[in-house]
C-alpha cells in the first residue's frame, strides 16, 4: 500500500488542495502503534483512484480537524475520539466522546487502545 506523508501543519492546506483538484474524502483510519503513538491514515478518492496520507502523532496531543474543509469528516473524527481518545479541534459537530459510548466509566476510557489512556488526562477542558 503506497502512501504519502503529511503533518499536522500541512493537513488543512493539503485538504484544501485536494478538494480543489476534485478529490472526494473517503475516511480516516486510526491505528495504535505503541504505548505513546498513534497513526492516522487519510483516504481520498478521485475517479476510482484511492490515495492515502499517513501521519504519526503522539497520543496526548489534540489534532486539527478536517471537518471545516470536508464536512463528511466530522463523523469519523467523532468516532476516533470515542475509540482512541484523540481530541479534534474545531469540529463542526462535536459529540464530545458520546457518539457510541454511554456509561460514565466508558466515556473516559479508550476501548480501541491496548495501552489505554484515561481520556480525561488527554483533554484538559473535559468536564
Amino acid at each position: 500500500m503506497q502512501s504519502l506523508e503529511i503533518t499536522k501543519e500541512t493537513l488543512r492546506q493539503e485538504g484544501e488542495r485536494l478538494k480543489a483538484e476534485g478529490f472526494r474524502f473517503v475516511t480516516i483510519t486510526c491505528l495504535e502503534l505503541d504505548e505513546t503513538s498513534l497513526e492516522l491514515i487519510y483516504h481520498f478518492d478521485k475517479d476510482l483512484e484511492i490515495i492515502h496520507y499517513r501521519m504519526q502523532i503522539p497520543k496526548d496531543a489534540p489534532m486539527p480537524s478536517l471537518s471545516p474543509v470536508f464536512f463528511a469528516a466530522f463523523l469519523v473524527e467523532n468516532e476516533i475520539y470515542d475509540q482512541f481518545g484523540i481530541k479534534f479541534d474545531d469540529l463542526v459537530l462535536d459529540f464530545g466522546g458520546t457518539l457510541y459510548l454511554d456509561d460514565d466509566d466508558d466515556i473516559t476510557a479508550t476501548p480501541f487502545c491496548k495501552f489505554g489512556v484515561k481520556r480525561a488526562d488527554t483533554v484538559p477542558d473535559a468536564e
Binding site: 473517503v26 475516511t27 483510519t29 486510526c30 491505528l31 495504535e32 483516504h43 463528511a72 463523523l75 469519523v76
Partner: peptide, 10 residues
C-alpha cells in the same frame, strides 16, 4: 487492525 467504512457511514 480491521477497519470497516460502510456506505451508510458515508
Amino acid at each position: 487492525r480491521l477497519r470497516i467504512r460502510t456506505p451508510t457511514f458515508a
